[in-house]
Design a protein around this nucleic acid. Structure first.
Lengths: 162, 162
DNA sequence: TCCACGTAGTTGACAGTATCAACCAGCCGG
DNA sequence: CCGGCTGGTTGATACTGTCAACTACGTGGA
């Protein structure tokens, strides 16, 4: 396989994964988009979680994170609490509904991962994860070249016409 | 690493890859979105290419493929030719402009792949591709369960509220 | 030969994902 | 005290993705 055949498998896997997750999430009676679920999970995992932390961790524009957080707030899955250390910032916490949404998500993720990794050995999965992380790091640590900078938000590419 | 940590690395790699490609494509003076470029490439690779073929190959909704094709048509990068074997269908061909766009794309892809695979051995890349294809197959060959069916377009999940 | 059923492609509508720009309130170091 | 920077917000826009309904056409069976 030549190097130039890396992009298509990645696109294909990504698309299959997202389509599967969308379907599985609907089957589980969850009506949140995938990004909302990932943000919820980030809040669940990280103590003293802020929007700024999530934007950095997920490499997303802070504007988008703000919108997602506000929708989760509207759904009653999170609350925003004043950050005593920085009055510009709010700490994010899951509500009891948010906690139970996390439980349901984990069930969905387990199904997805089981399906994805069918017939694969645990070593294979670990290998894939390692390689994926290395490649993502390579792309993100472009150091001023095309793509993301090493810290904070990436310097953004302009796409399409105004 | 536990199984449940597979989703995040995949999301992260996907996002990094798309962001990098968007930036690299802009740097190359190309103003087409990534999906347009992939459709162009599918037409370039496949003789007697049709919209239906692309929709199947890329696992996309035929409506979206039609729209992308019409934009490529508007840019003068492809032409639609009547299919003598099926009057419902059109065969797609690249114009000279389309051919030169393919050349510029290949240059961008080479940069992206070189960057992505920095410090990786060719065996690693082959392993990644193999694993990605297996996982995508696993997700797509769900045979009536959540996710795609084995042939044609997947049965679609309804997301969000109407 | 006719027709029911299915397919290829199109168009309308809508939602999710993603980014850029400009802004305000607040933080912090000189 | 203030300039520069940061956290978060809002407006605007583009890209990606799907569902539904439609028309023209293909095909196999009655």
């Amino acid at each position: 396989m030549s190097l130039t055949s890396l992009g298509e498998p990645l696109h294909r896997l990504t698309h299959a994964y997202r389509a599967f997750m969308r379907s599985a999430v609907v089957d589980a009676g969850i009506s949140l988009p995938i990004t909302h679920l990932r943000v919820l999970k980030a809040i669940w995992k990280q103590e003293r979680c802020t929007a700024q932390f999530i934007a950095q961790r997920m490499r997303r524009d802070k504007a988008q994170i703000t919108r997602v957080l506000n929708e989760l707030l509207g759904e009653g899955l999170i609350v925003k609490v004043e950050n005593p250390g920085d009055r510009r910032s709010q700490l994010l916490r899951l509500t009891p509904d948010g906690e139970s949404m996390i439980d349901r998500m984990q069930a969905v993720e387990t199904i997805a991962m089981d399906r994805m990794t069918r017939h694969l050995k645990p070593d294979d999965v670990d290998t894939f994860i390692t390689l994926a992380n290395v490649m993502a790091d390579n792309l993100q640590n472009a150091g001023g070249e095309a793509g993301a900078t090493t810290t904070g938000e990436p310097n953004h590419a302009k796409t399409g016409t105004p």
